[in-house]
């Protein structure tokens, strides 16, 4: 077991320790990274719960998670079933899906920054097909900033989930789904009644992971595309943790939000996992 100790210590020092510290720092009045801090009890939580920006972030995060996770998992599953049927040009689709999965958050943000430019791909495209009334400044309009943040996730995420679900379906004994097809099930029924039933547990795991990623990881996209604005129209909880700590010098508040995120993450993950537990 001595061989396992360095890895385990590394894990404790760089992952578990910092995570536990979130709770400690949230109870202090730390302003900047190096300022001295004192224990102030639940003061930060009181400030946070009385802050409109926090509630805006809660609302935006709820919308974001509530739309992105179900849409991505359902479309991903249907597309995965499609890949499983070995349609024509499936190889080309796979390359495209993996390509989008390899983009970093910074490159994805730059791609969206470029296509959403006032005279960029999207607005020129809308003009070409006669919908120029829909053209707008996507990153500066409070009505579109949050949808853009969600679109960045969905754009590349659906394809990658499809590859995962497709691989999982291919790994099943092939005859069950084929048998259901011979019994006269249409693709729609065989997809939802047979294929879904067989990988339900796996769908649950993917949904849970996607929930955690969507909840925690939007800070970078928001920072790079909208900085939460205009106003607070695209502030998410994840971005609030970042901006309170590194832009507004309020580390204590930032970590109080961090605690809220952690609790939401844990509760949501457990809920999704038990709702979609494998019946097999």
């Amino acid at each position: 077991m001595i061989f396992a100790m360095p890895a385990f210590l590394w894990y404790l020092v760089f992952l578990v320790g910092p995570l536990a510290s979130v709770f400690v720092v949230s109870l202090t009045n730390a302003t900047t990274l190096i300022a001295p801090r004192e224990f102030v009890g639940l003061e930060n939580f009181r400030t946070m719960f009385g802050d409109d920006v926090f509630w805006m972030a809660v609302r935006n995060t709820a919308v974001q998670v509530g739309v992105v996770v179900p849409v991505m998992v359902v479309l991903g599953f249907m597309l995965g079933y499609y890949l499983f049927l070995r349609p024509p040009l499936a190889g080309l689709l796979r390359i495209l899906f993996f390509t989008s999965a390899l983009l970093s958050v910074a490159t994805k943000a730059m791609v969206f920054y470029a296509i959403l430019a006032p005279d960029g791909l999207v607005n020129q495209g809308l003009e070409t097909i006669g919908l120029e009334t829909l053209a707008r400044n996507w990153l500066a309009d409070p009505a579109t900033t949050l949808p853009v943040i969600m679109a960045v996730d969905l754009w590349s995420g659906v394809g990658f989930l499809a590859v995962l679900f497709g691989a999982q379906l291919t790994a099943l004994p092939a005859d069950v789904i084929e048998a259901s097809r011979i019994d006269g099930c249409g693709h729609w029924r065989s997809m939802w009644h047979v294929a879904y039933g067989m990988i339900r547990g796996f769908v649950g795991i993917v949904a849970m992971l996607q929930y955690l990623w969507t909840l925690f990881l939007s800070a970078a996209t928001v920072l790079l595309l909208t900085s939460g604005g205009p106003g607070t129209s695209s502030v998410t909880l994840s971005y609030l943790v970042y901006s309170k700590a590194f832009q507004q010098s309020d580390i204590g508040y930032s970590q109080a939000v961090g605690v809220v995120l952690f609790v939401l993450g844990l509760a949501g993950a457990v809920a999704i996992r038990s709702a979609l537990r494998s019946r097999v």
Partner: peptide
Amino acid sequence: SLALGFLIPGFAALVPTVLLAI
């Protein structure tokens, strides 16, 4: 415990990670 750790996005501990670096 390692399998659980896989679930935690590193970002969750963004601020303490910087404190650790300091």
